[in-house]
């Protein structure tokens, strides 16, 4: 069964390290110091921490079964990869934001640094890792990898 990142708002400590880890993982060097000291532009974090103290939690793509973003994509760039996760084909994405328009969680970001064609940026469940970077870095298990218990 496909695992997704489960969010436990009760133990989020608002350290934002999930965002940092995400930026590092999606950078060129994958080296935290090089990313923050040298790489420009820096990647955009695909998870975002929402804060309203004491409440805080990080949220990223939920990889919906009936992903509306995949259905709304104007040229098939938003697709499911072989693992079953919803990912963007960066080569073909044209940044039309149809995915943003329909994403029921509001977790797709705009990367407008690519000049001609903007780029939709979202959690891709770290294809190069067994455990996503944000889950691994979370100091308090507020993000864990777990099975989906889905009901309607």
């Amino acid at each position: 069964m496909m695992k997704i990142i489960k969010v436990n708002e009760d133990v989020c400590v608002l350290c934002h390290l999930c965002e940092i880890a995400c930026i590092v993982e999606h950078s060129e060097s994958k080296d935290i110091l090089k990313v923050f000291k040298r790489e420009k532009p820096r990647p955009i974090a695909r998870c975002a921490v929402e804060e309203d103290k004491p409440l805080s939690f990080s949220l990223m793509c939920r990889h919906c079964d009936d992903a509306p973003c995949v259905k709304a994509c104007s040229n098939g760039s938003m697709h499911r990869d072989e693992r079953g996760y919803v990912v963007v084909d960066e080569e073909t994405c044209i940044g039309c934001w149809m995915c943003i328009m329909v994403c029921p969680y509001g977790v797709i970001r705009r990367d407008e640094r690519r000049q001609k064609w903007n780029l939709s940026t979202k959690c891709n469940m770290c294809p190069d890792r067994d455990i996503p970077a944000c889950v691994e870095v979370c100091p308090n298990e507020a993000l864990v990898l777990g099975d989906v218990v889905e009901c309607t």
Binding site: P68, W97, C99, I100, M101, V102, C103, P104, Y105, G106, I108, R109, R110
Partner: peptide, 9 residues
């Protein structure tokens, strides 16, 4: 526009 989808939902 980034949260627009939530309203769509």
């Amino acid at each position: 526009i980034e949260k627009a989808g939530m309203f769509n939902w």
